[in-house]
């Protein structure tokens, strides 16, 4: 498929959040997967505001990126935090040159095998609700076209996430963000429960729940809720 066609397809996918079985964890995982696919990045991660003054990691495409993002939150320093605090994009930062900017984060990022990083804000008018983090293994720069597409994806995702057509912005923002954080915890619990039941890794358990949700037109959180409650259908146990 040619690139512009694929791009259009992805935007339709990201805008389609008013469907019955919309699930925020699944949606954000799709967003980061598509960033890697379309932007020439090697890994992507996404953090959302917890509205208690901090950020929560919602999703990451690679385990080494996930570990690094958790570390970033612990040490309170790095591209996502900077982007979240300032509301401005952080782009094309080569990690060999970033020791002064992020003295604790940078060595950990290099250790994790990354050469460059970027962070794009998830903004709704004046409010920053999170940040999208991109990593490349090589210290290469992303083109301004790629960064533009990345920011557009982050914008579409933000709008979709907040269903902004509803009134009372402050109220909706809080309800949606808290609901997203809650879903993430539920999905993690279900990953653990299914991995123990099926004897597979937590990553494989996640993949199976997503596939099951898709093929049965169910929200991921509904599947997760069933797994946590002890109801596990046969196709989740055998792949």
């Amino acid at each position: 498929m040619d690139e512009s066609k694929r791009l259009a397809q992805v935007f339709v996918e990201l805008a389609d959040t008013l469907i019955e079985d919309f699930d925020v964890v699944d949606f954000l995982q799709t967003l980061t997967d598509r960033c890697v696919e379309l932007l020439g990045a090697d890994a992507a991660g996404l953090m959302l505001s917890d509205q208690r003054g901090g950020l929560q990691l919602m999703t990451a495409t690679l385990e080494r990126a996930r570990v690094l993002e958790v570390f970033e939150l612990q040490v309170q320093e790095g591209p996502c935090l900077e982007c979240f605090m300032t509301g401005e994009a952080v782009t094309n930062v080569e990690l060999v040159e970033a020791n002064k900017r992020w003295p604790i984060f940078t060595p950990a990022a290099v250790e994790a095998g990354f050469g460059a990083t970027h962070a794009l804000p998830m903004r709704l008018r004046g409010t920053v609700i999170g940040a999208l983090n991109l990593f490349t293994d090589q210290p290469v720069h992303l083109t301004s076209t790629d960064l533009g597409v990345g920011q557009a994806m982050a914008d579409v995702a933000t709008i979709g996430l907040l269903h902004q057509q509803l009134a009372h912005e402050q109220t909706i923002l809080s309800e949606q963000l808290q609901s997203a954080l809650h879903s993430r915890v539920l999905v993690e619990q279900a990953k653990g429960a299914l991995s123990a039941r099926a004897g597979v890794s937590v990553g494989e358990a996640f993949a199976r729940m997503r596939a099951h949700a898709r093929s049965h037109n169910l929200a991921l959180s509904v599947v997760a809720s069933e797994v946590v409650g002890g109801t596990v259908t046969a196709d989740l146990l055998t792949s």
Partner: peptide
């Protein structure tokens, strides 16, 4: 933390 929630799921089984 993700590990805590995953472990909770594992222990329940």
């Amino acid at each position: 933390r993700a590990e805590v929630h995953q472990a909770t799921g594992i222990i329940s089984v």
